[in-house]
C-alpha cells in the first residue's frame, strides 16, 4: 500500500537551464503532463506542468511548434523562470491512501516522490492510482459482481462471506460502500464465477436484499426526493 510500490520509477525529468520549448517537446514525446526539475545531484528543485508551459507560449506556437517567429520570443525562456519552486511532494513511505486523499485535496494530477534527503525517487500520478484501484477491484479476472444491501451491524459480513464460501466460490474483491439510508451499507462482492443464480437465491432466502444492477453506485449520492 506504499507509494514506493505504485509510483512510476523511470521519471522523465528536466534541468533548470533547459528551455521551455524543450519541456514542451519532452512532454509531447512521452505523453506526460508533469516534469520534475532536478539539479545535478538528482535533488528535486521544482516542477513544470503542461499548463505552465502553455501559459507562457503564445497560442500559435503551442499549436505549431515549428513557427519560427514565435520561437525567437520564447527561445530564451528557461525552465527555472517558469517552474513551481518548492512543489508539493510525497514520500515513498507514504501510502497510496495518503496520495489519493492528497491529490483530491490539493487538486493536482501528480506528486513527485522525494526521499528525506530531497532526492527524486519517482512520480505518482492519478494514472498510477487508478491502476492500483483497478487491481483492488479485481476486474482483471473473470467474474460477476453482486450488490447486497445490509443493515449496518456487527457480523453481517461474516454471514455473507460464509454463505458464498459454502458454495465453493472465491472472491476477486469485496467492497463496502455507504448507502443513502443511514443504517444501511451496500456490499459488492466480486465473485470469480459464472455460476451465480444459486448463490443469489441463497442470499435472498437468508433475507438479504439484492439491489437491482441499475440501482448500484459506488459513490455516495444524495437521496432524490
Amino acid at each position: 500500500m506504499f507509494v514506493s510500490r505504485s509510483m512510476t520509477i523511470k521519471v522523465v525529468t528536466i534541468q533548470p537551464d533547459a528551455t521551455v520549448l524543450e519541456a514542451q517537446e519532452l512532454m509531447a514525446k512521452h505523453q506526460i503532463r508533469h516534469l520534475p526539475v532536478i539539479d545535478g545531484k538528482d535533488r528535486l528543485i521544482g516542477v513544470v506542468t503542461d499548463r505552465d508551459v502553455r501559459s507562457v507560449l503564445p497560442y500559435d506556437c503551442y499549436k505549431n511548434p515549428d513557427c519560427a517567429k514565435e520561437h525567437e520570443k520564447v527561445a530564451g525562456l528557461k525552465i527555472k523562470d517558469i517552474m513551481v519552486v518548492e512543489p508539493l511532494t510525497i514520500s515513498p513511505s507514504d501510502t497510496i491512501q495518503d496520495a489519493l486523499l492528497l491529490i483530491q485535496e490539493k487538486r493536482v494530477g501528480a506528486f513527485p516522490v522525494v526521499d528525506d534527503k530531497g532526492k527524486l525517487k519517482g512520480i505518482i500520478s492519478v494514472r498510477d492510482l487508478l491502476r492500483a484501484f483497478t487491481n483492488v477491484l479485481g476486474i482483471g479476472e473473470p467474474g460477476t459482481l453482486l450488490c447486497i444491501l445490509v443493515e449496518e451491524k456487527i457480523g453481517q459480513m461474516k454471514k455473507i462471506v460464509d454463505a458464498i464460501t459454502e458454495e465453493g466460490i472465491s472472491f476477486g474483491s469485496i467492497l463496502v460502500a455507504r448507502y443513502w439510508e443511514e443504517d444501511k451499507r451496500a456490499v459488492f462482492p466480486y465473485l470469480l464465477t459464472q455460476n451465480i443464480s444459486r448463490v443469489k437465491k441463497k442470499l435472498q432466502k437468508m433475507g438479504y436484499t439484492l439491489l437491482e444492477p441499475m440501482d448500484w453506485y459506488l459513490d455516495q449520492l444524495p437521496k432524490h426526493e
Partner: peptide
Amino acid sequence: PSFAYPGT
C-alpha cells in the same frame, strides 16, 4: 461486463 461474467 460491469454487471456480468466474464467482465470483458
